[in-house]
């Protein structure tokens, strides 16, 4: 009587021993792992070529002198610590990032709730429309904003003055220039938060809300005790991601103000461009662009650890 085949592995014939089966199985696993590796290889190469290598190269560059002929260790960073203009750039970058990320998260959160409560047929349209700012290349959309804020022929000012209001110096006054670059960053980045929060909202079981309603919980209590705790991980991850990306922002400031007036809208990336590319001091530019790395790395480590522990608890 033939042996009953109970696994997906062909039954060993009289001349095929257990060792051969094990070898075949190992070979199959190996070949699957090899295939997986080969499929991932293009992406790995891209990441290594476009992220890992430039990152380490930037670290290497930041430790050279201006002529790139001598190793100066952390000398470029020490040099930056003594420059008042650099500290102004640090303060501006922090102001820009914290303000923009806060409002992007807030607007994304509110809009996600609004869209979540729209009947399903209408949701698709609103979801699509809300993503428009995010899918347009920022350099292009910022050009549109520049036309709205043009120092002399601002379309917004034309409207304001048509209604008898005073024109606003959008790009020439320090406060308004900072306001403008932050506003455009919020406009561009809020849809990312919206779509992430909308997805998170949809994953919260309705039963939790139903039970809370039965228990007499108010809308505020449902938000604080159900929605926010259930969304905590996605909020942490989106805030982390957005903080890193916003700190590295370049195109909005470059197109709108070029760092002016009086260098008061420069961010790390635009200031690094000015030093490295325009003035030919690549090592100092690299040092500027890497300045936030240790702080952001620590920030990311703590947030991701928190997310991981919370996920384990859940």
């Amino acid at each position: 009587m033939a042996r009953k085949q109970v696994t997906g592995i062909p039954a060993a014939g009289p001349r095929v021993g257990r060792g051969v089966v094990a070898r075949r199985w190992t070979g199959l696993r190996r070949s699957r792992a090899t295939l997986a590796f080969l499929l991932c290889l293009p992406l790995v190469l891209l990441v290594v070529g476009l992220i890992v290598y430039p990152f380490f190269y930037a670290i290497y560059l930041s430790m050279l002198n201006k002529a790139e002929t001598a190793f100066v260790g952390l000398g470029n960073f020490a040099f930056l610590f003594e420059r008042s203009t650099f500290w102004m750039v640090v303060r501006q970058s922090i102001l820009f990032t914290l303000t923009a990320v806060f409002f992007k998260a807030l607007i994304g959160f509110v809009c996600a709730h609004l869209i979540h409560n729209v009947p399903p047929r209408g949701q698709r349209l609103w979801r699509g429309l809300s993503l428009v700012p995010w899918v347009i290349p920022p350099a292009l959309s910022t050009l549109g904003w520049w036309w709205l804020f043009d120092p002399t022929y601002s379309a917004v000012n034309w409207l304001l003055t048509s209604f008898g209001a005073a024109a606003v110096p959008w790009l020439s006054d320090v406060f308004w220039a900072r306001f403008s670059v932050i506003l455009v960053n919020i406009w561009y980045g809020a849809p990312f938060f919206l779509i992430m929060y909308l997805a998170a909202l949809k994953s919260i079981p309705e039963e939790l809300y139903d039970a809370a309603k039965v228990d007499g919980a108010s809308a505020w209590q449902r938000l604080v005790h159900i929605t926010l705790p259930m969304m905590r991980n996605i909020i942490a991850i989106t805030m982390l991601f957005s903080t890193i990306v916003t700190f590295a922002n370049f195109d909005i400031v470059r197109v709108l103000t070029q760092g002016g007036p009086r260098n008061t809208t420069h961010l790390f990336a635009t200031y690094a461009f000015k030093l490295g590319i325009q003035s030919g001091d690549i090592p100092l530019g690299a040092a500027v662009s890497l300045f936030m790395f240790p702080i952001l790395a620590l920030f990311a480590m703590f947030i991701l650890r928190d997310v991981r522990e919370r996920t384990k608890r859940l």
Binding site: P151, T152, P169, L171, S172, A177
Partner: peptide, 11 residues
Amino acid sequence: PDDVYAWDDAA
């Protein structure tokens, strides 16, 4: 003009 601080080369 007050806005010269934001003018570029074309302004």
